[in-house]
Design a binder for these strands. Structure first.
Lengths: 233, 233
DNA sequence: CCCATTGATATTGGATCCATTCCAAGAGTA
DNA sequence: TACTCTTGGAATGGATCCAATATCAATGGG
């Protein structure tokens, strides 16, 4: 049932699956998570499920009240702003480090991901590489590549931790909806790539910082407008 | 046996206790952690201990190999440097935010903690407020106050997470040993306080960044010299 | 008619039990 | 003597069991 190469990672596997379901929106914000139901769904006992839930709680993705169960957490707008301020600083640092470390291969990869965004923007997308899914992935990959180029596992973990704390579908929905913001987004990506190409650490850091802050403001505003996309049942 | 106000926090309580033991050096680096032993020591079953260990693993303080048990993790020198680079950026951000938010009361508190360090340095410590314990505490409090003044829970959590990942006794031992570095340390603290008093965000950020980077370099060097303070037996 | 108390029910949290796995010591053989 | 295979013990990880607690509905009283 659970064919992991790495026995002993069952708990982490369960946690990853639940996280994925929350990220994809399959488990909507505010939905109560029943341990028994999850255990049955994954074909395991409640013990690993409970541990997985606790991990997610510690990660901030869900809330657990004693004897009352766990619910998918509802991030408040100001919390989004605060988290993105931290993320901006961290990704800025990543860009700074990347400026002197990134390889030509990675730069090419960045440009490729950006091309996808450009194409999606101009409607010249060629079939498969279109749609909000492709743009979301291209966006993620862009930031991932910069993180990898920064070559600092701790930094990487911290940034991942922030990203894992907000349901992805919400974020991408917020971005995908606003055409104007997507243009800004791509321009900012280009600025980052340009700075990295020029090996200009200061400019790369500032460009990335501004980009993330801007995304954060946008996302915060979106949350403020319709912070009611929660589970009702 | 466990009179917590907050029932349901037993696991977190266990985790905190184990973490404290690791931090204080009572559980030396490299020491294998037996679930049964810990359970007996705390008067609980193995279940909450297991969950607590997994939390610590996720936090990076211990390593767990499947069916082989958990050991207190040995941070490598380069890992210390990388973590402190991240910490410098985060605490720099904290100082920047604090510059415009810190209250007079908090500033006074900062000065008080710094006075303790000054006193310890000049040997004019008055009995109880002497010793490495007091200086370590004053150091911690200094950074904690700045973090609180920054008023960003996410930032706070991230910084805490980094600090919780390195056995405190090792860090303080490294600092306490070097008189020269302690002087530098206090001067840097003073610089931060001065910048905060002047409400100069840029200067505060830079002062704090430099301070943390410098501490990180020192700690890294210490780890390189005697990275063999591990458990043998 | 509305509110409080109480009992049933469901769900969580901790304890215990059992299968699996890893490590080490010892016997047997080349 | 050295190498390997076996076997026993010990520890982990998952499953199951039981107690504690919160939710909800029903009933009785104001």
């Amino acid at each position: 049932m659970t064919p992991q190469t790495d026995e002993g990672a069952l708990v982490d596997d369960i946690a990853a699956r639940i996280r994925a379901q929350i990220m994809s929106g399959e488990l909507p914000i505010g939905k109560p998570l029943r341990q028994a139901a999850l255990a049955a769904e994954f074909g395991v006992s409640r013990t690993p499920v409970r541990e997985a839930l606790r991990q997610l709680q510690h990660g901030g993705l869900i809330e657990m009240q004693p004897h009352r169960g766990a619910v998918v957490r509802v991030p408040t707008p100001w919390e989004v702003r605060q988290a993105y301020e931290v993320r901006a600083e961290l990704e800025g640092l990543a860009a700074r480090r990347a400026a002197s470390r990134i390889t030509e291969r990675q730069l090419a990869e960045l440009r490729r991901h950006n091309d996808v965004l450009h194409a999606a923007l101009e409607g010249t997308a060629t079939g498969a590489s279109s749609g909000p899914l492709a743009t979301t992935q291209a966006n993620d990959c862009f930031h991932t590549v910069v993180c990898e180029a920064a070559d600092n596992p701790w930094l990487r973990r911290m940034i991942d931790r922030i990203n894992e704390s907000f349901p992805r579908n919400v974020s991408s929905m917020a971005l995908a909806g606003d055409e104007r913001h997507r243009q800004l987004n791509v321009r900012q990506h280009d600025a980052v790539v340009a700075a990295l190409t020029a090996r200009d650490a200061d400019r790369a850091q500032e460009a990335m910082r501004e980009h993330v802050i801007s995304s954060g403001e946008h996302l915060t505003a979106w949350y403020e407008r319709r912070s009611q996309i929660v589970f009702h049942g």
